[in-house]
């Protein structure tokens, strides 16, 4: 979210500078520090669960409302540990061929036709079912990678229950079975992060294999720290005012409450506008950054907008 270099699916290599040899055998506080070092201010539970995930080698299931930084946690972990991030974006109808592996049959065909004249059939047979003809999809990538990775399975609640069942072998034993090749075990222990927006109850079997972390909107102080970390030029008073207004907006019953990323965007917008206070005018002008629904805009303008100082009246 806060990182622009992001692809929908596949590999992202971070030019990370932080070496977390210390993180692997450190304490909870060190994990927290390391995460803060890469721009993610984790609260106590988040830091603790990240720490446990590494220590116990268990997947983490992160749930919470949209926009509290669930995905960002995985990315921060990848940056903090200097591991590569392998991301699987889930969607309805996602299947094995897209998530695990697929045989590259075109290449297999080519191999047969190319080697056909020599007629060394046994060789071909052995050959075409080797790793060379396998198209690795994210899950396979994470397992087969020689370097330890961070595997992010994003929005698991968007998939079917059947897909969850398929994940179980991977999550509990970090291995995968391919009929032609046999069992592939992870050589290195990946950190697995699953996120869910709680749009559907996940199965017991999946939950049983995971550590559970509920992320919620941060409190004022922490959100202020986050905003100031990502928009360092903002003054303290403005930042405080900003998170207070955001807090008020979240308290309303909105279709889409503003996320942390939107707080940051708003802070940056205010800086660009050169505002040094949030009055009614700047609020109306920049409201569309944080509220993105027709009915929400009306509600917010009505409930929050009027509480802010009116610049015209203040001068007059």
């Amino acid at each position: 979210m806060w990182e622009q270099r992001e692809q929908r699916q596949g590999k992202i290599r971070h030019g990370s500078v932080i070496i977390i040899g210390a993180m692997a055998d450190g304490s909870v506080a060190e994990v927290k520090e390391a995460l803060a070092g890469v721009g993610y201010l984790a609260d106590e539970p988040a830091a603790l669960v990240s720490f446990l995930a590494q220590k116990l080698g268990k997947p983490v299931l992160v749930e919470g409302p949209a926009g509290v930084g669930k995905t960002e946690l995985a990315k921060a972990l990848s940056r903090a540990t200097g591991r590569e991030l392998v991301r699987l974006q889930c969607y309805e109808g996602l299947d094995e061929a897209k998530a695990m592996y697929e045989w590259n049959y075109r290449k297999q065909l080519l191999r047969i036709q190319a080697g056909g004249s020599q007629g060394d059939w046994d060789d071909i047979q052995d050959d075409i079912f080797s790793a060379e003809f396998l198209l690795e999809r994210p899950l396979m990538q994470a397992i087969a990678s020689p370097e330890p990775v961070v595997l992010l399975i994003d929005e698991i609640d968007k998939t079917d229950q059947e897909f969850e069942a398929m994940l179980l072998e991977l999550l509990s034993d970090f291995q995968m079975t391919i009929p032609e090749l046999g069992r592939i075990e992870a050589t290195t222990m990946p950190i697995v992060v699953l996120t869910s927006n709680d749009s559907r109850e996940l199965t017991e079997a999946l939950k049983r294999r995971c550590l559970y972390l509920w992320l919620d909107y941060p409190n004022l102080e922490r959100e202020m720290e986050i905003v100031r970390l990502h928009a360092p030029d903002i003054s303290e008073t403005l930042a405080r005012k900003l998170v207070e207004v955001i807090g008020m907006i979240r308290a309303l019953d909105l279709k889409k409450p503003p996320s942390i990323a939107e707080s940051i965007d708003w802070a940056r917008t205010l800086l660009l506008m050169g505002a040094d206070d949030i009055d009614r005018e700047t609020f109306t002008q920049s409201m569309s950054i944080i509220v993105k629904h027709r009915t929400d805009i009306d509600l917010v303008a009505e409930r929050v907008g009027v509480k802010l100082a009116d610049p015209l009246r203040a001068e007059g």
Binding site: V28, E44, P45, V49, L56, R208, C210, L211, L213
Partner: peptide, 20 residues
């Protein structure tokens, strides 16, 4: 893996593994 002396850590570690 975590210190038992910190109440918060103790509770969070238990919660993360038990309450799903």
């Amino acid at each position: 893996e975590v210190g038992w002396t910190s109440r918060a850590d103790f509770r969070e570690a238990l919660a993360a593994t038990i309450a799903k």
